[in-house]
Simulated scan of single mutants.
Amino acid sequence: MISHVSPGHLTPASHQADEAAGRRNPGATPAGPGSGPGPRNGGGSATGPGTRGALGTPAGRAVVGLLIPVVLVIAWWAATAAGLFSPVQLPSPASVVSAGIDLAADGSLWHHIAISVQRVLLGFVMGGVLGLLIGSILGLSTWADALLAPLIGAIRAVPSLAWVPLLILWMGIGEDSKVTLIVIGAFFPIFTNVYAALKHVDPHLVEAGRAFGYHGLRLLRTIQLPAVVPSVFSGLRLALAQAWLFLVAAELIASSMGLGFLLTDSQNNGRTDRLILTIILLAVIGKITDAILGLVEQRAIRRWS
């Protein structure tokens, strides 16, 4: 076994070597932690205290994360001001803001946002619960894995738009078909992550749980799911992103409200300013929901992992 030597604690041989070096070169500084060819004023690595300070707090990371979007908006404004694009191809930032103000003034913007958020949250929750349940069953049962894994793998390969005509035929053009399509999109990421993670749970943990009398659902809830919490939340965050992606496809099903409808309606009417506004709103709202889920993930990992 190799004994641990704390930093800054030199062995007698090291002391002798340093004393000999000092006699040969009186101006030399004995070797030790922190010595070397680096800067004299405490700056050692590329990620120095200043960089760690800027990224060490959520506010600092948020400010740094805004740098690139601000640069892109400035470049966008410069390109439109210089006349590099026609207003139909790329309207100015001021035109996009004006379009947003107009939609907000008559209240339609808030209705579009509210109905889309409602659809995404419903589909995400239902798809997440199903993915967690079925992923747990297949991850824990060899028979269920053999029976269902090939079918689920085949269904996962079906493109989102391929479901639209079938859902219209089965469920009509109401909310049920739209939410069901989002459920399909949200299901597979969480299912895949939970299924794969449960397959790789440490068997010693499972045996220890069984030794304490845990079996079935109690074993899953007490031992196995806490062991895969990071994978579960990775799947949930992917599922939430997928839910927003499937939203646009869902709102192609005879919608009259929602951000997906606003997107296609703006395209049909040649309103590029509203089209870009919708894309920005989808990005911003999607990021906000992901950040909220990230906060829940941090608390869950601190509690269960």
Results as ranks from 00 to 15, higher is better:
Thr142Cys: 07
Ile155Arg: 11
Leu122Met: 11
Val129Ile: 07
Ile152Asp: 04
Gly235Gln: 03
Gly209Glu: 01
Tyr214Trp: 15
Gly213Asp: 05
Leu161Met: 08
Ala186Met: 11
Ile137Gln: 00
Ser234Ala: 11
Val183Thr: 09
Thr222Asp: 10
Ser141Ala: 13
Lys178Val: 15
Ala154Pro: 00
Leu236Ile: 07
Asp145Tyr: 11
Ala186Ile: 08
Gly174Tyr: 01
Ala197Arg: 10
Gln224Lys: 06
Ala196Leu: 09
Lys199Leu: 08
Ala154Ser: 07
Gly127Trp: 07
Leu225Gly: 09
Ile134Gln: 12
Glu175Asp: 06
Ser136Ile: 06
Pro165Trp: 14
Val183Ala: 07
Val194Asn: 00
Ala196Glu: 14
Phe191Ile: 00
Arg210Tyr: 12
Leu130Ile: 11
Leu167Met: 08
Met126Ala: 10
Ala162Glu: 08
Pro159Ile: 04
Arg156Trp: 12
Pro189Arg: 02
Val194Met: 01
Ala196Trp: 12
Ala186Ser: 03
Gly123Phe: 03
Ala211Trp: 01
Met171Asn: 10
Val229Met: 11
Asp145Leu: 14
Leu151Glu: 09
Pro189Leu: 13
Asn193Thr: 07
Leu181Arg: 10
Ile168Gly: 05
Gly172Arg: 12
Ala208Phe: 10
Glu175His: 07
Ala154Ile: 07
Leu140Asn: 11
Leu225Ser: 03
Leu130Arg: 06
Gly135Glu: 03
Ile137Trp: 08
Val125Leu: 05
Gly128Phe: 13
Ile173Thr: 14
Leu130Ser: 04
Leu217Phe: 08
Leu225Ile: 09
Asp176Ile: 13
Leu236Tyr: 05
Ile173Gly: 07
Trp143Asn: 13
Arg218Val: 10
Ala186Asp: 07
Trp163Thr: 09
Ala208Gly: 12
Gly185Tyr: 04
Phe212Lys: 15
Ala186Lys: 14
Gly131Pro: 03
Ala154Arg: 11
Leu161Thr: 15
Ser160Cys: 10
Ile155Gln: 08
Arg210Gln: 12
Lys178Gly: 08
Asn193Leu: 12
Ala196His: 14
Leu181Gly: 01
Phe124Ser: 04
Leu236Lys: 01
Leu147Val: 11
Ser136Met: 05
Phe124Gly: 01
Ile190Asp: 14
Phe124Tyr: 15
Phe188Gln: 10
Leu225Cys: 04
Gly235Ile: 02
Leu219Ser: 04
Gly128Cys: 12
Val201Arg: 02
Val164Glu: 06
Ala144Trp: 02
Tyr214Ser: 13
Leu147Met: 13
Val194Cys: 00
Leu225Pro: 14
Phe212Ser: 12
Arg210His: 05
His215Phe: 14
Ala197Lys: 02
Gly153Thr: 03
Val194Leu: 00
Leu198Thr: 00
Phe212Met: 11
Gly127Ala: 13
Ile173Tyr: 13
Pro203Gln: 00
Gly128Leu: 15
Val183Arg: 08
Arg156Gly: 04
Thr142Val: 15
Arg210Ser: 13
Ala149Ile: 12
Leu225Phe: 05
Ala146Thr: 11
Val125Asp: 03
Pro150Gly: 01
Leu169Cys: 11
Val229Trp: 09
Gly213Asn: 00
Gly131Val: 01
Ile152Met: 08
Gly235His: 04
Ile137Gly: 05
Gly128Ser: 15
Ile155Phe: 14
Thr142Asp: 15
Val158Tyr: 02
Leu220Gly: 03
Gly216Tyr: 06
Phe191Asn: 02
Leu140Glu: 14
